[in-house]
Design a protein around this nucleic acid. Structure first.
Lengths: 345, 345
DNA sequence: AATAGCACTCTCGTTTCGAGAGTGCTAACT
DNA sequence: AGTTAGCACTCTCGAAACGAGAGTGCTATT
């Protein structure tokens, strides 16, 4: 259906840009006066009617200006997708912040969330890089008290999981350390399936821990993403479309119980490959809670080894021109960091 | 200034209770009709005038009903402080949830935050129990990649900190394990100051790690509270006083950058001892952002060993009758849990 | 001391109204 | 044929007007 004439394209983009800035329906007259189009308002009206007919625009009421439809936004985004780049100065500032921070995943995620939120004036969402196919690297067992022990497990790539276990009976730290070192000798470099396939061990404690390790690795692989880092929540309230608190509350709830969010991010895992951006506009008919929102998502990391998701959520009227390049740039940066971290293995 | 007659007390409490429910200024007539006071509206008016004079009530405009002042709320809270108890059935439900969960601090905190938020319809705030005087228990060193290693440190009491370190040069896992086990033999049970006072070690790696351990322990002691668990953020938006998003945004921002919050919780550390509640009303002249809010705080844990803070933030008009007993009860529960955890040492 | 009565004040929801902005359509223009 | 001017019409929005309702303070009475 790309029956858009050149003029219609320009007009459409202009209208959307104006609406994103002003948050108000844009009319033919305003358009004719404000921008240097050498067209009369009447002509513009005709074109607008056509664009409305085609489903790119919409009028809130008869005799109000036009507002982009979701389809309109989609066109807008597709147009700017390949073109927008973050100014070099901003790039430098951001990169600088990352290189100054400690080499700690937690720090990176927090920083990424903060930068995304500030740059885009939206709500940022970042998940930690996650090994698609976890390989065992190391386990430590530390007795904390009585029958409870702390198990710290490290994957190749540096992903860490800690968990508290309750054993059937108290075990001394020495015994735990021996068990751990035996298992470490045995399992290093193996994937979860290989470990599960090992023959049962003679020592009961060994066997118990082994089972738990497998469980834990499974859990790490299954949860598409663990904790979600987020920032800029208060930004949603600045947007006029969330002035009535009801709509805003719905959006906030998304972040309290992460299930919808998890769902959303999981989808991206499937559809999108590292490097590509994905923009979901108006919930895409799937997410009722997001009907008023858009999300710009990207996948980062090293495919097959460790990847994560990051993105920005905002009103459908969000500034894509700022958000898209920022998300892309930060995703690239994080990919590099992950790459560097893994490189040594 | 407790020149309140018995009748004035009853009236004041009634007015506040009504206002908390209805969120609307309460007038003399409404009061006379709705409740079984055998007084005429005129009499009530007189008393109201007196209460206003004394600073417990306020009228938004001439000829509107009365609204409690902060002083009024304070009186209200002081009255109900000793009396309110959570229904036994609710107590059971809550206790049940805790006993079903895994023995994991993270789980507990999340659960506590969730329960508080739901019960009180406010925003809950919980910090993990934190050792006031950390004692060393165990360290593990795990090489993750090249010069970077993961250091996992466990305190007596079970508090865990993990950190990524970058060494001057790559070190094998064997060597790391040896170092760790040497240090474990040496340091177990010592407090940070004792460790800092140890003579320097001959082995360079040992010494490096030792320094880092001390640093890390200091860090853990210093940060009054690390991560803040929170829930029910979307509840703020339901309250009519936050209908205009500006006020709501301010409250939300509190939770994004935790500094004010940290500050607030730190104060409680000083003023309040375990078991006692503290109710801050209207920011108490100190916290501009909280002028419209109240916060019910409690300290839990075992004094001198490990304590944490928990509380609920809501509009000044929040339901103290539900919030106060809930906070008190959950604080008690968490104290028990901390106690049980530590008992074994 | 408590109350009934009264005059007065102030808010709030409704209604009315006109300005303004925008539209669609038709007829004229290039 | 594409563009533009003109016009009648629609709809929103803010201001002004207004009356109902609720509440108050004060005074006189019980």
């Amino acid at each position: 259906m790309p029956e858009l004439t050149e003029r219609q394209k320009t007009l459409l983009l202009l209208i959307i840009r104006d609406y994103i800035e002003s948050a108000q329906p844009v009319g033919s007259k305003r358009l004719a006066e404000h921008y240097h189009i050498y067209l009369s308002s009447a002509t513009i009206r005709n074109e607008m009617a056509a664009l409305t007919e085609m489903g790119y625009l919409r009028q809130p009421h008869t005799s109000a200006g036009r507002v982009p439809t979701e389809e309109g936004y989609r066109y807008f985004v597709s147009q700017m997708m390949n073109q927008a780049e973050l100014p070099a100065s901003v790039q430098q500032t951001i990169a600088h912040q990352f290189h100054q921070s400690k080499p700690d995943v937690d720090q990176w995620m927090t920083l990424a969330a903060s930068i995304l939120a500030h740059q885009s004036q939206g709500v940022s969402v970042v998940t930690a890089p996650h090994a698609d196919k976890a390989k065992y690297k190391h386990v430590e067992l530390i007795s904390t008290q009585g029958r409870q022990i702390l198990m710290v497990q490290v994957m190749v790539g540096g992903e860490v999981s800690q968990q508290i276990l309750t054993l059937a009976e108290p075990v001394s730290q020495e015994r735990l350390s021996q068990t751990a070192s035996r298992l470490n000798g045995l399992l290093t470099g193996l994937a979860v399936d290989a470990i599960a396939a090992l023959p049962a061990r003679s020592d009961a404690l060994d066997q118990d821990i082994l089972t738990l390790i497998v469980q834990d690795m499974r859990r790490m692989v299954d949860r598409a993403s663990g904790e979600i880092y987020t920032d800029g929540l208060s930004n949603v309230l600045s947007e006029p479309e969330f002035a009535e608190s009801d709509e805003a509350r719905r959006a906030l709830k998304l972040f309290e119980k992460g299930s919808t969010l998890q769902d959303l991010l999981a989808r991206t895992t499937i559809n999108s490959n590292v490097g590509g951006l994905q923009v979901l506009i108006g919930g895409e008919g799937e997410w009722e809670e997001l009907r008023q929102c858009s999300i710009v998502l990207a996948r980062y990391g090293v495919p097959g080894l460790a990847t994560g998701t990051l993105g920005v959520l905002g009103p459908m009227r969000m500034s894509y021109a700022r958000t898209i390049p920022t998300v892309r740039f930060v995703a690239g940066l994080l990919s590099d960091l992950v790459n560097d971290t893994i490189a040594g293995e």
